[in-house]
Design a binder for these strands. Sequence first.
DNA 1: GTGAAAGCGCTAACAC
DNA 2: GTGTTAGCGCTTTCAC
Lengths: 352, 352
Amino acid sequence: MASRKDPRPTDTLLTPKSNDRYQMADLARLAGVSTSTVSRALAGNPLIKEATRQKIQALAQSLNYQVNQSAASLRKRDIPTMGLVIMGESKQSISDPFILSLIGHIADALDELDMNMLLTRVTPDRAKNFAALYETGQVAGLLVIGQLTNHSQLNDLYNRGTPMVVWGARMPDSHYPVVGGDNFQGGFLAGQHLVQAGCKRIAFLGDINHPEVQMRHAGFVKALTDVGQSFDPRLYMPLLFGDTALRAAIGQWIDQKIEFDGVFATSDVAALTIIAALQERGLKVPRDVKVVGYDDIPLSTHIHPTLTSIRQPTELAGRAMVALMRQRLQNADVDSITLPTTLVARESTLLT
Amino acid sequence: MASRKDPRPTDTLLTPKSNDRYQMADLARLAGVSTSTVSRALAGNPLIKEATRQKIQALAQSLNYQVNQSAASLRKRDIPTMGLVIMGESKQSISDPFILSLIGHIADALDELDMNMLLTRVTPDRAKNFAALYETGQVAGLLVIGQLTNHSQLNDLYNRGTPMVVWGARMPDSHYPVVGGDNFQGGFLAGQHLVQAGCKRIAFLGDINHPEVQMRHAGFVKALTDVGQSFDPRLYMPLLFGDTALRAAIGQWIDQKIEFDGVFATSDVAALTIIAALQERGLKVPRDVKVVGYDDIPLSTHIHPTLTSIRQPTELAGRAMVALMRQRLQNADVDSITLPTTLVARESTLLT
DNA sequence: GTGAAAGCGCTAACAC
DNA sequence: GTGTTAGCGCTTTCAC
């Protein structure tokens, strides 16, 4: 067995599973310099002579040596990792393509800062202390997606000094910085578009206990009242994706002759589901019922009919969250950001 | 400004943004014991008197103190974090619900081991050195999803001693352990089912350069030849999700009168897309064309027609990957695992 | 049952 | 330009 100081086996047998690793002292010895020189060379410190640097870097490369992060973090008091917290009603909710797109863009933005991403999900049933990620020094800060009803918990955390940026809706008493789409505008655009498409009785699909959805509902109702329509509360359905109750509910509307000719769903996934439920009952989209979704997920253009939707700029969103976090980590004051939402018209609301 | 040793402000002003944190020495001082005692008390070491332990734990709680992981890791040579590497053709591919489900279950399994999950994506364009995650000591091992064409790179890594478990297809010369669905069986079941549903000319949708898809294709062709049917290579389409070429291709088949009455798509997302394309051209599913997808994503039951699909057990898969990794980290020998695939019949292949 | 002291692998004064 | 040295915050022998 090789000694700890020399991970390479002393016999001829290949022992790739050795847990020993090279460390700076090894490189220093092999290169005939001190560890300070190795440290500086690998960090690209200009104090080190070019030739020395190259030699050491080549050596490190050939040994697959990489600086131990725990040791470096401890010493530098610098953490190259960001925490990403996904709060969801259930484990399922991580599967919304919109969230995914957001995660992807956050990851891209972090990549550019050479930061890693530690992902954790928080569900109501298993409400783990995600702040521990920060308190244990594993991450430099927390990016939170989906504030849900944890608003006051988030406020507490932020007030306690946790660097934090949240995706969601700005609440009147939020202390923490929020990045979010303009939900009121999104709801308004959806309502306005359905009205202009000739809809007289429009259903609203989404849970207004969720802060973002509440804003969308407000914008949506505004669009109706602006043209003298009113919203029939019987056409409000707090749908969760995957809810089998949906088909039943649609069936009920039809059976009870509660008429409707438009639907605003607060997610594209919900919109797809309702379109299927309508088709099942023999109703045609957009002929009988027009549908507007939310998020503009890629799948929207790959179904039939293609789906009209409210687009949220996920790339901007991801970048903005990371940018705000960066400011916060530099102890700058940080404001919330509201991003514009736009309507993308497709077949599901076409005039027929 | 408070001194580093006492994070709490000495004046009356609340300064939540202080970067100072309590550390063990602080707790030790406040509790009137040594840091060894604090360390042991927090670790639940039975050597410590119950009363002392409780006092110290209460103190830690009240100060939101958590042990610094970098320091603990450095000392204990133990890393509470697992790396999850998503290899994708594009950034998009992280958005496949199947991958997501797998990620979710891996996260669950890691949670049970009190491990965190460091997520990183690797795309061909930005082929970063994901092994660095391990070599820098940031993660205890690497779980890799989507081996793609990086097979030999993975072999090298594993041979070099990197603890690694891969989701995908077992290759003849894989040295690394692989967890995967039984792709041959999956393909066979799909082919058999379509044949039994009366299909005579079945198209195959998926890129056989991908190892998993290749196996599915083999199983699929076997099912056809078993009953004396042959596969018309003109009905092979290496579709990527989001490919706008798809509609064009379908159109071409129809225009050129290349007949087909069944489609086996190697992902549900692809299946949804093709169903939309068929509907657009006025073809009915399942009346004119029957469709089988792959992965059995939740959305499959929420579209119209509901989608027949090959289910892969993602929960088992996630657990298996973590279990294998655990064995590997205990230096046990690790075998690959093939999980059963099953067919879930729904409306898209119903006899009409 | 608790404390003193050494050291995990690295970085950064400070010295030369 | 490079080496020496101290110390990041913790865990764990070893001593009592």
